[in-house]
């Protein structure tokens, strides 16, 4: 099995994500918009913002995955690409994983890398830990994207699938959100939390491709 369909799917996905003209700026704009609304909604008190800042970023990452994943497999199901993969005997689970990875690279990773700047806006002190947190955001958001992509694959043939993805994916986002928030809390139990975060992300990467493959075969019928 040559890696050609895999690479082309990955490249095509990345291309689609950048094709909007704004590239990675678009998700960053989304993050900025979501984050700026929070102080307007809950007030500008320094201590409050410091407390909610890390959590707001997790929520923004989860939302970003839900918003960008809605169309990830719909076009493939509509224009016959999916049928071609299946006819060619391409490994659908690997292709789905590659597409998810490409979406994460364009809509998840930039947000994680941008997070120290937003953390400063939420009154966090400028310390190296912000960079470690950026790594944790990157790790956790990968799990968001994989579970979200399962929801997207299941609703690939559903109109207005976006709302459905949110409902399906929400319970699956729980462990990542909890471990991630715990790792950044600095409280008791936070030392082992990054490992748990990594474990739950690996779990998502291991299980989700097979669920996506089963769901995409269904979408092709």
């Amino acid at each position: 099995m040559s890696p050609a369909p895999l690479l082309s799917a990955f490249r095509q996905s990345l291309g689609e994500a950048w094709a909007g003209g704004a590239g990675a700026l678009l998700p960053l704009g989304f993050l900025g918009g979501a984050a700026v609304l929070v102080p307007l909604g809950i007030g500008s008190d320094t201590d409050t913002l410091k407390a909610v800042g890390p959590g707001i970023l997790w929520v923004a990452l989860a939302l970003s995955s839900l918003v960008t994943l809605e169309r990830i497999f719909q076009a493939d199901a509509e224009d016959g690409t999916l049928d071609l993969w299946l006819q060619a005997g391409a490994p659908v689970s690997a292709i789905a994983a590659a597409k998810t990875l490409a979406h994460w690279l364009s809509a998840g990773l930039p947000l994680a890398l941008f997070s120290p700047l937003l953390a400063l806006m939420f009154q966090a002190e400028a310390r190296p830990v912000l960079l470690i947190n950026a790594g944790l955001y990157a790790l956790g958001s990968l799990a968001f994207f994989f579970w979200g992509a399962v929801g997207a694959a299941l609703s690939a043939t559903v109109r207005r699938g976006g709302l459905l993805i949110s409902l399906i994916a929400l319970p699956l986002y729980v462990p990542t959100a909890i471990f991630g928030a715990l790792a950044m809390s600095g409280g008791p139990g936070s030392a082992g939390a990054p490992l748990l975060l990594g474990a739950s992300t690996l779990f998502a990467c291991a299980i989700a491709p097979f669920a996506m493959s089963a769901a995409l075969r269904l979408a092709a019928d």
Partner: peptide
């Protein structure tokens, strides 16, 4: 679709349980 989702959910239930138990 329902069967796939129910199985994915069932695989995640122990993880969800463990994480909220923290």
């Amino acid at each position: 679709a329902g069967a796939i989702l129910a199985m994915v959910g069932a695989l995640n239930v122990p993880l969800i349980k463990f994480s909220v138990d923290l």
